[in-house]
Design a protein around this nucleic acid. Structure first.
Length: 230
DNA sequence: TACCAGGAGAAAA
DNA sequence: TTTTCTCATGGT
C-alpha cells in the first residue's frame, strides 16, 4: 500500500530513541530519587484528586480532599448525591469549584453506574480508557492519571511539564498531540507501569525544583514562559 | 502586581 | 476543524 505524505497540518510524530528517554529517566531519578506517587489513601481518592488537580497546584487539592474527608463524603454515591452548591463549597480551595463540582459529580455517577471501583478495575485498559474519556470533565491526562495511579495500568501520563521538558531537550518539537507523546513514550519503554509512575512524578518534581532556581535559569525550568528558552 | 499551577469543555473564528 | 476563551483559589 502506498504511503501518504504527511500534510502540513498533521500532528508532529514522536518517536524518541529508547536510549534518550532512558537517560532522561535515570538522570531525574538520580537527582530526585523515587517519588512514590500518587499520594492518595484509596484508588477512589486518587480519582478525585485527578479531577481536582486539573490546572491546579496539588497543595490546594489536598485542602479540598481534606474537606471531603472531614464532611465524610469521600465516596462515589455520597459525592454524586450532594447538592452541587454544597460540593462546590467543600472543594473551593482547589479552584474552579463550580466547574469541578459538576465534573466530580459526573465522574461519581459514572463510577456508581458502572458498579463501583472494583467493577471498573476488571475492565481491560483500552475499554476502561474509552469509558473514562466519555465522562464529562475527564480528558486524556485525567483519564491516564486514573489508569496509572488508581488502577496501576501501564499508561504514560503526558502533562504540560512533559511536553515542555521533551521540547527543551530537543526530543520533541512541542506541538505533538497528546496521543503521539503518550504512544512515543510507551513504545520506547514498553508496558512498564512502575516506570511510568516514577517518570511522571519525577518530571513534576523537576519542574518544582527547577522553578526554585529560576533567577539563574539556563532553560532547565519548566515554566510556561521560561526566560532562557523563549 | 504578575505569574503560575499535575486541564477540559464551550464558544468563536 | 482549529483556535480562543472561561473557569478561580492560593502560593511565590
Amino acid at each position: 500500500m502506498a504511503g501518504r505524505a504527511p500534510s502540513a497540518t498533521a500532528p508532529a510524530p514522536f518517536r524518541p530513541a529508547r536510549k534518550s528517554l532512558r537517560t532522561v529517566y535515570e538522570r531525574l531519578l538520580a537527582a530526585y530519587g523515587p517519588q512514590h506517587w500518587w499520594p492518595g489513601e484509596t484508588p477512589f481518592e486518587v480519582m478525585v484528586g485527578a479531577v481536582l488537580t486539573q490546572n491546579t497546584a496539588w497543595r490546594n487539592v489536598e485542602r479540598a480532599i481534606a474537606n471531603l474527608v472531614g464532611a465524610d463524603v469521600l465516596e462515589p454515591a455520597r459525592i454524586a448525591g450532594l447538592p452541587a452548591a454544597e460540593l462546590a463549597a467543600l472543594i473551593r480551595p482547589a479552584g474552579y469549584f463550580n466547574v469541578k463540582a459538576r465534573r466530580l459529580q459526573a465522574f461519581c455517577r459514572f463510577v456508581v453506574d458502572a458498579g463501583g471501583v472494583e467493577a471498573l478495575a476488571r475492565l481491560p485498559t483500552p475499554v476502561l480508557r474509552h469509558r473514562l474519556l466519555a465522562v464529562h470533565g475527564v480528558g486524556p491526562e485525567t483519564a491516564d492519571d486514573i489508569l496509572l495511579y488508581a488502577f496501576g495500568r501501564p499508561v504514560f501520563v503526558v502533562d504540560a511539564y512533559t511536553r515542555r521538558l521533551f521540547a527543551r531537550l530537543g526530543l520533541a518539537r512541542g506541538d505533538e498531540d497528546y496521543e503521539a507523546l503518550r504512544a512515543g513514550v510507551e513504545r520506547a519503554f514498553g508496558a512498564d507501569a512502575a516506570l511510568f509512575n516514577e517518570l511522571h512524578g519525577l518530571i513534576v518534581q523537576h519542574a518544582k525544583a527547577a522553578c526554585a532556581k529560576v533567577p539563574r535559569c539556563a532553560g532547565c525550568c519548566l515554566r510556561r514562559r521560561c526566560p532562557a528558552s523563549s
